[in-house]
Design a protein around this nucleic acid. Structure first.
Length: 260
DNA sequence: AAAAAGCGCAACCGCCACGCG
DNA sequence: CCGCGTGGCGGTTGCGCTTTT
């Protein structure tokens, strides 16, 4: 049973959004900005729940959304961050400009979790029926997750991010992402051409937390994430800090991460 | 060629924390 | 301090498309 839905569903549209609804939502947000999701549908003339509007905007319509396949570098970073943060999709997404938590979560569930699973397998499996295979995968997945739960160093409860994060993600991302961002569907494909940048807040992050990045000055708007050495450096710094004995220090890392 | 199974992803659901009166 | 409204988050579902049998 549980509690009542967030809003009355009576008379509201559900399921896939139509182009018309998308247009209404985009036009309204362009005119009035994000927020006030509860009243937005009414004001925008949409027969949708406010929550649904928010999700549609954040996961699909926002102009800074980068559509297309996950690049190998992003792929690598997701795996590494997941090993540190667990299923903290929003935090992981914040390290991947233009990617949404939903997208990363889906990508993990459909691609990476299997890959991680396969890598952890020591025995080669015999060919079996798909059903049996899937059942086995499910079982193994459960085992891996059980182990991961032990491995993850610190997994605080999900918490709301500061308003600053909204500014970071939604207001200035056009300047952070080079290449075209597409708001239409079916624009997958040109992923190889994507180049994106670590935003300048990385250096602020380092300064604010007294982190000694190997080359903090290198973190500027013009720093391509495509440099896998840099990704390694970032990841290693995270790991070092997380491996530290001081729980307070670890907490501060998550606090800082939550601020972006 | 048809049916079954698998896959990918948009959308939904419910819980939780923050902000404000 | 407390209760309510709201927004954010992670988990889950549903469905269309693709692949396999």
């Amino acid at each position: 049973m549980g509690r009542a839905p967030c809003c009355s569903k009576v008379g509201l549209n559900r399921g896939p959004w139509t182009a018309r609804e998308d247009t209404l939502l985009i036009n309204y947000i362009q005119a009035h900005g994000e927020g006030h999701w509860r009243s937005l549908p009414k004001m925008a003339g949409l027969l949708r729940c406010g929550k649904s509007c928010r999700l549609r905007w954040i996961n699909y319509l926002r102009p800074d959304i980068k559509r297309g396949n996950i690049t190998p570098d992003e792929d690598d970073l997701i795996i590494r961050l997941h090993s540190l943060l667990g299923n903290r999709w929003s935090l992981i997404a914040k390290r991947l400009p233009g990617r949404t938590d939903n997208e990363i979560k889906n990508y993990w569930n459909s691609h990476l979790s299997k890959r991680v699973l396969n890598n952890s397998q020591t025995n080669s499996t015999t060919r079996s029926s798909r059903k049996a295979k899937k059942a086995t995968e499910k079982k193994q997945k459960a085992n891996v997750e059980e182990k991961e739960e032990i491995k993850v160093l610190h997994q605080p409860k999900a918490s709301r991010v500061s308003p600053f994060s909204v500014i970071s993600r939604s207001s200035s991302f056009d300047s952070l992402i080079s290449g075209s961002s597409s708001s239409g569907e079916g624009s997958k494909g040109t992923n190889d051409a994507y180049v994106f940048y670590i935003p300048s807040y990385w250096s602020d992050f380092a300064a604010d937390t007294n982190l000694e990045f190997p080359d903090a000055e290198a973190f500027s708007d013009a720093t391509p994430v495509g440099d896998s050495n840099l990704l390694d450096d970032i990841f290693e710094e995270y790991q070092k800090l997380l491996d530290g004995d001081d729980p307070g220090e670890r907490d501060s890392i998550f606090d800082v991460l939550s601020c972006f």
